[in-house]
Structures are given as C-alpha cells and as structure tokens.
Amino acid sequence: MKRPGPPPGKIFLAFLKIGAFTFGGGYAMLPLIRETVVEREKWVSDEGFLDIISLTQSVPGALAVNTAVFIGRQLAGVPGALAATAGAVLPSFLIILAVAAFFIRFSQHPLIIKVFMGIRPAVVGLIAYAVILLGKKVIRARARGNGFTVAVASGAFTLVYWFGLNPFLVIIAAAGAGLLYSFFSGGGDGQ
C-alpha cells in the first residue's frame, strides 16, 4: 500500500450503507458506489473507478460484489476486501431472511397469489429486457466480428433451448470458441 488506507471497519460501514439502500443490483448500484468511494470518501479517483469497473466486469459473479472486493482490497488489503464484501452482502442477507420467512408463510394467501399473478409475467418481460441490454453492450463493444457474436449467441440459444444442453457446458464451449476465433482471426476481441 502506498498510503495508510481507511480502517476495515469504515470500509465495512460504507459498503453496508450501499448494500442497504440500493435497489436493482449491479448496474443500479454502481452510481451509489461511485458517489461513496469517489466523491464522499475520496478513496478512489475518477479514472481509478472506471478502471475498477472495467476489471470487475471481466470477472464472473455479481458486479456489485466484485466491485466491493476490489475496492476493499485496494484500500486495506485482504481485511479490507473481506470488510467491503461483508458490508455489501449483509443487508441483502438479513432483509431476504425476513422477507422469505414472511413470504413462505403467506404465499398461499389469495391476495399474494393475485399480486404474483401480475408480477410473474412482468419478470419475464424484465429478463427479456436484460437480453436486449446485454446484447447492445456486446454489439457495441465489438467494432468488427459481430458475425461471431451473433453466431455464438444463436448457437448457445439453440443448444440450450432446442437440444436441452446444460448451460454450464455451453459457457465452457463458448470460452473455447472465443479462444479459437481470436487465434484464427489474429487477435483480441476486435477492439
């Protein structure tokens, strides 16, 4: 560490607040994380934050957790990383326990059934929206090679939807396809 970072307790509290007050996960949480660590606490510079986001998107897992781990690690090493992660996750954990206990008990109540008759189709629409959102991102990120993107996306869809293949296998195969394509097309992901 170049300079003494904030104590893990402070990091924990900062991420606890972020975890408790942001709805919508991942991309919805980034603005609040940025406000906290860049503007209020000045733990990370503006460019530093952009770097962190681009890195955390290259790692599997929940975006908000990845960002917390990385910032915590940068501020106070492994204890900082654990403190930030615990802070980001703890509110979710406690709130869901309370909600789940309630919901499992009342899920057969006629009113709750009605409410979720309306919510279920909306969630289908929400996931369809995620397809478009992620699709736009991937297409935009590639100056050339969109043919490969479309081929892999439709291949993955066909294998899972029509042939019932396990999505885990499809992701591993897609990683292999990405390697082969980059090898034969001579570099990178077309940026």
Binding site: R142, T149, A153, V170, A175, G178, Y181
Partner: peptide, 23 residues
C-alpha cells in the same frame, strides 16, 4: 479477452432461452 469474447454472446443466448422457458 478471447475467452470473454466467446462467453459474453453465449450468455445472451442462454438468457434468451431462459425467457422462453420461464415465459
């Protein structure tokens, strides 16, 4: 980058199939 360039589009296909199956 090569690995991610393959996984990203595959994930989109997977989520699309989830939309149809869940829908």
């Amino acid at each position: 980058r090569a690995i991610i360039s393959g996984i990203r589009p595959a994930v989109i296909g997977l989520i699309l199939s989830a939309v149809l199956v869940l829908g």
